[in-house]
Design a protein around this nucleic acid. Structure first.
Lengths: 106, 106
DNA sequence: TTATTACATCAAAATAAATTGATATAATAA
DNA sequence: TTATTATATCAATTTATTTTGATGTAATAA
């Protein structure tokens, strides 16, 4: 489910690469808006987002892939549709409870 | 102390710009390493970091400015030295308690 | 005053990320 | 089978970020 290596705080030479990737994924207002939509809706397909955000499909697929690769969201295939939902575990590990309902679940 | 506007969760058109800036600041392994050093040391000057991280001074000033502009750290001038320290309030608002001691205080 | 230390800032070059429009694929419907 | 829908991916371009080396400045020391 989570393909990222799990970092250890005690490793002095820890290169922060996992956190770097996850913060990079969060470092874009369009992706934050995507996360916000997913947070509000529970799960969304690409077509939901193209309608709501008025962005081209290829752009959304690109940004969703970045969030997916960083394990901040998960994907489920149903027929022709791809549904995206929050990866609560990863988001709760990373973000404060005060960001609850903004771009992370409860 | 914190020059960033305070975002409101209830604003439907909220553009996430503050969070974008803060996550951008975190989205770089060198800056995470800087934060980690500051977390460990309490406060550091640029010369401490040039020694510990073996990076040119201008590069460190550049990255420190990005963290500073995002209000993730604060600066205090003492003579010729500039000391940098964590902005605990901003970091605690943003990051989970599990990241305590990695790049945020207690 | 001159020299030195600690640092910020600048402009140019290098690198990385985002955007666009096109094409490919897989599932379903006709 | 053919058409359609939903989506991923690709290559080219545009835009943003990072790096580098140089220069400027302010504080202190000689």
């Amino acid at each position: 489910m989570n393909s990222l290596p799990s970092p250890s705080k005690s490793d002095a030479a820890f290169p922060f690469t996992v956190y770097e990737q996850q913060f990079k994924a969060l470092a874009d207002s369009q992706r934050l808006e995507i996360l916000h939509h997913i947070t509000a809706a529970g799960s969304v397909c690409v077509c939901d987002l193209t309608e709501r955000m008025n962005l081209p499909q290829s752009k959304l697929s690109y940004h969703l892939k970045i969030l997916l690769d960083a394990s901040l969201i998960d994907r489920e295939k149903h027929g022709t549709w791809n549904y995206y939902m929050l990866n609560d575990q990863a988001l709760n590990h990373l973000l404060s409870e005060e960001l609850c309902c903004l771009f992370r679940g409860k």
